[in-house]
Structure formats: C-alpha cells, structure tokens
Design a protein around this nucleic acid. Structure first.
Length: 355
DNA sequence: GCCACCGGTGGC
DNA sequence: GCCACCGGTGGC
C-alpha cells in the first residue's frame, strides 16, 4: 500500500534561549506545544514552559536534525522520539548545561513530501508505529487540521535553524501508562541520544535487559499484556553530520616505513587530527545533506581541538553552533533530494523565526 | 544518597 | 561504524 515513503520528524529545541515553541502556524501553535514542547534545562522545571517563550532567537540555539530513515529499502521507518516531558516524573536537572530536546514531531507526506507537524507525541507515536503499512499523507492530518491538503505550504522545512533527526519507523507505542523518553545528548557526545522507558510507578529503564528484569519482577504488567515487543531502544539519527563524535579510530601509530621519520607520538594522533579540513568546516550546512559525504569532523563553535582531544574528565560542554538558513515557505520538502526518498521521520528543533 | 547524563566497550 | 548495555559521577 504505500506508494512512497513517508517521513516523520521531530523538532528538537535547544534550550539556551529559552525556547519556545512558538509558532509556525498559528493553529498548530497551541497544539503542538504540549507534546513536543521542549524544555530546556534551564527552565526546565516547569515542564512546560511551553508556553513558551522565546524562541527564535537563538542562533545557536537551534540546530537541525533530521531523523533519517532508510526507507529506501522500501519501507519506511519511523521512530519515536518523544521527549515527553509531559508527565515525566521529574527529569529536570538544572544545570548550566543546555541540552537539546525534541521540540516538534513532523511527518513527511508520502505524496507531496511536505512536512506536517504532528500535534501530539501520542499521535506521532501512533503514526510511527504503522508508517510502513500506512503511509502518511497530508489528508491524514485532517484529523486535526480539517482543511489541510498537499496544496498547502509545508508546516516546516529543514533549514538550519533546528536540529533534525530521523526516526526509525514502526516502533511500537509504549504500553499504556508507560512513557518512552528520548533524551538528546549534547553535541560532540559519543551518542546522539538515549531512550528510556518510564514504568507507571516512575521507574526508569534504560535497556531491554532492564525492562525484562523489571517485568519479571512485576508480573502484573505481563499479566496485563505488556510484552517486550512493545519496547524499542532505537534512537533517531541526527541529520547533521558530526553532531556525534565519532569513536576514535583505532589508534594508528604512524610508523615510518623504514627509516625515517618515525614519529614517536603515534598515539597522540588520531586520524581526524590529521585532516586539516576538519577544522575549516563550515559545518553550517550539513544540515541538509543527508547522505553525502561530508566533513567528518566536529563542528560547532568550539575549536576543534575541543572535540578531538577530549578533555580530561568531563568534557567541556560545547555550545551549539548557530546556523540559520531560511526556508521559504514554498519550499517543499526537505531539500534533500535524493535522500528525500529515504527519510521517514525527523525531528527538528524549534521553529525558526516565524514568530 | 539519588539519578540524569555521559563515556566506553564488546559484539556484530 | 553502529548498537546495546551499563558503570561512573557531578550536581542536586
């Protein structure tokens, strides 16, 4: 049934500026916020600050991520990336650090490829769960936007103002009463995000092993029908290359063939260090390039060295780099050409400046 | 003392 | 290279 791949997206926002989700479309405005709302660690506390406040601003604050999806193979995939703050037991950890969080959920129409904002995390999870068998179309959004059609401009497009992440498709919705949380890590981390499931009592589980153990210890859930198949710890992929620090290549010693320059510091060099381009990186554009080869090193504003050489203990937090690109309304779908076909889901950070 | 976040690693 | 898992720890 599905003719073309559909994509889903989530918006991620960076807290620094305080974020808010305000607006892209008026209508959505309200709706959207809740689910996706982002929370910044700074404000965090309230869970929803959603009400939002500012947003646009940040230059850096926002980046874009797209969640990718290999739908190429024919099926699309979507993943859930809810940030779920909403009833979360209590996450807020206010620290000076600012972490991105999901600011919105979007799905790409399988027909016109425009991105449509999904009003709630639950709806997003529902769509994602069946995206392969039931591709998403603009008409699907009529459930919450009666007038919408492929003729309307996209709700959002991939510009450099947000972080986009492509979700994996067909991830089961969490069991009733359970929450699936996606925590986006800071740029330059070794992993893009972490998924947690929060059991009704508030117990946080971070792996299938823990889930299984928990279910065994609490048979009541299994009796109620909860099964392991309802859990998935798959994380979305950042569209922005280099958002995640690559694992250092196996240390290669530089040994000079024969005599010569045997540099002794072998261990100190990593491949990336040797690549001059890495630094120059404009990084700014990586956003739209999905599969393309690109720079492979760190971006962000901090001097590369920060990324490459990792700080002694806790790595220094890197401020998000700013990038802004404009996205015209009419611009359809993500500029990602060929890749377009493969994406299914994505997350993005806060809305641009629409204000 | 708790726990959210991060890093690292083993296995693929 | 990616993913799953889990230990460590700083900040509360």
């Amino acid at each position: 049934m599905q003719s073309r791949p559909t994509k889903i997206t989530l918006r991620v926002k960076r807290a620094e500026n305080g974020f808010n989700s305000s607006t892209f479309s008026d209508q959505l405005d309200n709706t959207i916020q809740k689910p996706i709302d982002v929370w910044s660690e700074e404000e965090e506390d309230e869970e929803h600050s959603a009400d939002d406040d500012d947003n646009q601003s940040g230059e850096d604050a926002q980046k874009q991520l797209v969640v990718y999806d290999p739908a190429a193979t024919g099926t699309g995939e979507i993943e859930v990336v809810p940030d779920a703050e909403y009833q979360r037991p209590r996450f807020p950890r206010t620290s000076s650090r600012v972490l991105p969080s999901v600011g919105a959920f979007t799905v790409q129409c399988a027909n016109c490829f425009k991105w449509r904002l999904i009003p709630t995390k639950e709806k997003y999870e529902e769509i994602r769960e069946h995206i392969l068998e039931q591709p998403f179309f603009c008409e699907t959004a009529r459930e919450w936007r009666p007038e919408i059609s492929c003729e309307d401009p996209p709700d959002i497009c991939q510009d450099g103002s947000r972080l986009w992440a492509i979700d994996k498709p067909n991830i089961a919705q969490p069991p009733p009463g359970w929450q699936r949380l996606l925590r986006i890590r800071g740029e330059g981390s070794t992993k893009f995000a972490d998924v947690y499931y929060v059991a009704p009592p508030g117990k946080r589980l971070r792996s299938m092993v823990e889930v299984q153990r928990y279910l065994l210890e609490h048979p009541e859930y299994m009796e109620a029908g909860v099964t392991m198949s309802q859990f998935s710890f798959q994380i979305p992929r950042p569209l922005q290359e280099n958002y995640v620090r690559k694992r250092p290549a196996p240390v290669r010693l530089i040994a000079a063939p024969c005599g010569g320059t045997n540099v002794g510091m072998a261990g100190l060099l990593e491949s990336s260090d040797v690549n001059p381009l890495a630094w120059a990186g404009p990084d700014e554009n990586t956003d739209l390039r999905l599969g393309g080869p690109g720079l492979s090193t760190p971006l962000s504003e901090a001097p590369p060295s920060e990324h490459i050489n990792r700080p002694e203990k806790k790595r220094a937090r890197i401020a998000p780099s700013s990038k802004d690109k404009m996205c015209s309304n009419n611009n359809i779908s993500p500029a990602v050409s060929s890749d377009q076909q493969r994406q299914q889901t994505a997350k993005v950070e806060e809305p641009p400046s629409l204000s």
